[in-house]
Computed example of a mutant assay.
Amino acid sequence: MPKIEIYTQPGCPYCVRAVALLDHKKASFTEINAPHGTQERVDARERSGGRTTVPQIFVDGRAIGGCDDLFALERSGKLDALLQAA
């Protein structure tokens, strides 16, 4: 199983959707609380190459983007392979 990390913020509807999709896929992941002004948010921005929004999702250390990117992978049929083969 790949190591999946998702940086989120309370009250973020995109974060809720991304977490729900990962839950639906029965993916094991670590959710990192990263509200504005926290070191975790700085870490997410640095790891993602400068993206400032949440969620930020990483699979085995590789940034795959946010909620829209996660759902695009799902629509294209590539998410399952990524979650299993990373």
Rank of each mutant, 00 (worst) to 15 (best):
M1W: 01
M1E: 00
M1Y: 00
P2D: 03
E5T: 11
E5M: 09
E5L: 11
I6D: 07
Y7T: 02
Y7A: 05
Y7V: 02
T8M: 06
P10S: 13
G11E: 05
G11S: 07
C12H: 02
P13Q: 08
Y14T: 02
C15L: 10
C15Y: 11
C15S: 14
C15E: 09
V16T: 10
V16F: 06
V19R: 14
L21H: 01
L21W: 03
L22G: 06
H24L: 15
K26V: 07
K26H: 14
A27T: 08
S28V: 15
F29S: 12
F29D: 09
T30G: 04
E31I: 11
E31T: 15
N33G: 03
N33H: 14
N33K: 15
N33A: 13
A34K: 07
P35V: 03
H36Y: 11
H36C: 01
G37Q: 06
G37E: 05
T38Y: 10
Q39W: 00
E40D: 01
E40C: 01
R41W: 04
A44G: 01
A44T: 04
E46D: 14
R47I: 00
S48W: 03
G49Q: 05
T52Q: 13
T53Y: 05
V54G: 04
V54K: 07
V54F: 06
V54R: 07
P55M: 08
P55C: 08
P55D: 03
P55G: 06
I57A: 05
I57P: 04
F58E: 13
F58T: 12
V59A: 05
I64M: 14
I64E: 08
I64N: 10
G65I: 08
G65A: 09
G66P: 09
L70W: 03
F71G: 11
F71I: 10
E74G: 04
E74Y: 10
S76Q: 14
S76E: 15
K78I: 01
L79Y: 10
D80S: 06
D80H: 01
A81F: 13
A81Y: 10
A81G: 13
L83K: 02
L83E: 01
Q84H: 01
A85L: 02
A85C: 00
A85R: 02
A85Q: 08
